[in-house]
């Protein structure tokens, strides 16, 4: 029995959501009296790999083959499955993310495992293995028993607060034979913003809606985001109109985020928009219409013209 955590890299660094998953996995190992091993795929520096130890991993497996650099979920699932069998792992923990979902799913298929997505708390082991997960995009929670021998959990981002220690973890090279069939899908072109804070990983998000009037006005949103080290997001009509790229669209049909702070500017607060952001810890709404429904779901509100308010907020942040 042991816990295996699949940890993701972004631009060579362990993702924040993966550090949360490692910490979560180490706590489950503590609860069950076993140990937690993290597995990292693709090229990474030793410094970065040992960081997993500071978040609770007792050991790090590193599959360093450069063929594993570009997040191929099928190949990842095969390698992780090999690690599961080497380590005799019966609990596998991943961050809920676009890659984490795919790896978890393929693994569940391989191992016939019980799978719970969007887990938000440590398991209750008092009678079996019960987790609390978020469903209906945060509108409800389901307490789910995992009765299968092998259990796979994907952890909702920013719901577990990891503690960092000085602990170190030994890094072991892990080689698993790679299958050609796992590389049948060819990546012909990749376009990815570099250096930016990834929206799903961000602690603070500044978001704009149709109230911004046009893409040429996004500078004031970006300025505030920059001052706050925040990522930018938008409502669906804004990405439908091509004012902003689709990967910034949050909501029912877009990305679901749960940052510490979500600042909504010129967004009315339709229920489908709220579905993507309602698990944010603190919500700020800036809207010129005092009747905008978003105020009912906010913690702080300003009724005002965003073209006046946003630049003043940016100045106030810069003055901190």
């Amino acid at each position: 029995m042991s816990v295996l955590i699949f940890a993701e890299l972004d631009e060579g660094a362990l993702k924040k959501s993966s550090l949360e998953a490692i910490y979560y996995g180490s706590k489950v190992a503590e609860q069950t009296g076993t140990s937690a091993t993290a597995i990292v795929l693709g090229e990474a520096s030793t410094d970065e790999l040992t960081k997993a130890g500071r978040f609770g991993a007792a050991k790090v497996l590193h599959a360093s083959d450069a063929k594993l650099n570009d997040g191929n979920a099928m190949a990842y699932a095969s390698v992780v499955a090999a690690a599961v069998s080497q380590e005799g792992a019966d609990v596998i923990v991943l961050a809920k993310s676009s890659l984490g979902d795919a790896v978890a799913a393929r693994l569940a298929g391989k191992l016939k495992a019980g799978l719970a997505a969007n887990v938000i708390e440590l398991p209750d082991l008092s009678s079996g293995f019960r987790v609390k997960r978020s469903i209906f995009t945060g509108k409800a929670f389901a307490f789910t028993e995992l009765t299968a021998g092998t259990k796979i959990l994907t952890i909702k981002k920013n719901t577990i607060t990891p503690e960092e220690t000085e602990a170190t973890a030994p890094v072991e090279a892990f080689t698993a034979g790679l299958n050609d069939v796992d590389f049948a899908v060819k990546v012909t072109h990749t376009e990815k913003a570099t250096g930016d804070i990834l929206l799903p990983e961000a602690d603070v998000v500044v978001s704009g809606g149709r109230g911004l009037k046009g893409p040429e006005n996004w500078g004031i949103v970006e300025d505030l985001a920059k001052a706050l080290h925040a990522a930018t997001a938008c409502s669906k009509p804004v990405s439908d109109l091509d004012w902003r790229p689709h990967h910034e669209h949050v909501g029912q049909t877009g990305i679901k985020i749960s940052p510490n702070l979500y600042i909504a500017c010129g967004i009315s607060g339709a229920i489908q928009h709220l579905a993507g952001v309602n698990s944010s810890k603190v919500i700020v709404v800036i809207n010129k219409d005092p009747e905008a429904p978003f105020f009912k779901s906010a913690d702080y509100g300003i009724v005002g013209d965003l073209f006046d308010v946003l630049p003043r907020l940016t100045k106030a942040v810069q003055a901190l």
Binding site: T144, E145, T147, A148, D299, I302, A316
Partner: peptide
Amino acid sequence: LTQVSSYELPPARGACKMIPAEEAETLI
């Protein structure tokens, strides 16, 4: 492999604290 035993609804968010636009800086 899994079984839902019960459900729960999230707690309601507290009241929204309104800040007058003239004092927007207080928000920060």
